[in-house]
Amino acid sequence: MADDPRPAARRRRPLRGGTIGTYALLTALALVYVFPFVVSLANSFKTDEDAANHPVSLVPQTFTTAAYQQLFQTDLPLWLGNTVVVTVLVTGGRVLFDSMAGYALSRLAFRGRNAVYAGLVAVMAVPGVVLLIPKFLVIKEFGMYDTYAGMIIPMLADAAGVFIMRNFFESVSPSIEEAAKIDGAGVFRRFWSVVLPMSRSAIITLFILSFQASWNELPQMIISTQSPSLFTLTKGTAQLASGALSAGSQFPVKLAAATLMTIPVAVLFFVFQRRIMNTTAGATKE
């Protein structure tokens, strides 16, 4: 893509039959990938009967926002509020704590740094699902079960984010910080006034990843809460999908909830498209 060293080569090649075939194949595949979302959106504006009788049709027979009205009149505003609280705090916490730790691991020579680094690598290797019950045990033991604290605090830092920041700091020259150091700025001051403003690109990456992770988080909400007043969008929608309402019908309501919870992530995705995809593409060094 952008890093093609010789863009001229692109023009040298004539458009051949093979290329047209590739386009056709890609378009067909892209339609397959987009289709479920379009179906979901279309059916969320149908009546229950219409969705059940014409599941393929992308045009509602009678266009209705009843599903959305039902959602907004019941619990959805509460779920949305809880999700926003969790997402804001978790994203803020991760951006701050992960960049602090990443900075320390890259720039501060302190005794035990290698041990901390090794510990974080080990922690990252533990599969998340294995920790469901263990996390519940600790949250309960700390008296944080069924509270915002129990939902949020365990997610405030993540090892992967620390590595993103550490690798970023490894890649930029410390010369500006060193200039600040010569000027007599202490380490905290340097971090706040020099390092953080300089790290905008890495922080945006971390912000996107944290936002997406906390907005979409389900297992943590399952194990840390039970009262309906603490439901997030994910847990609420999950309940909607598998609860009493799910007797085969009511699909427009569920699809409307699915559509609504997708919107913020979709917006973030389209705004930061290029950065997100470059981040993930570079996810693994060989």
Binding site: S40, L218, L255, I276
Partner: peptide
């Protein structure tokens, strides 16, 4: 192709159930 990867697993499951 990438969009499904950033979407919530809950939303995708609901869509697939339908």
């Amino acid at each position: 192709f990438y969009f499904p990867s950033v979407t919530s697993s809950v939303a995708i499951t609901v869509i697939f159930l339908f």
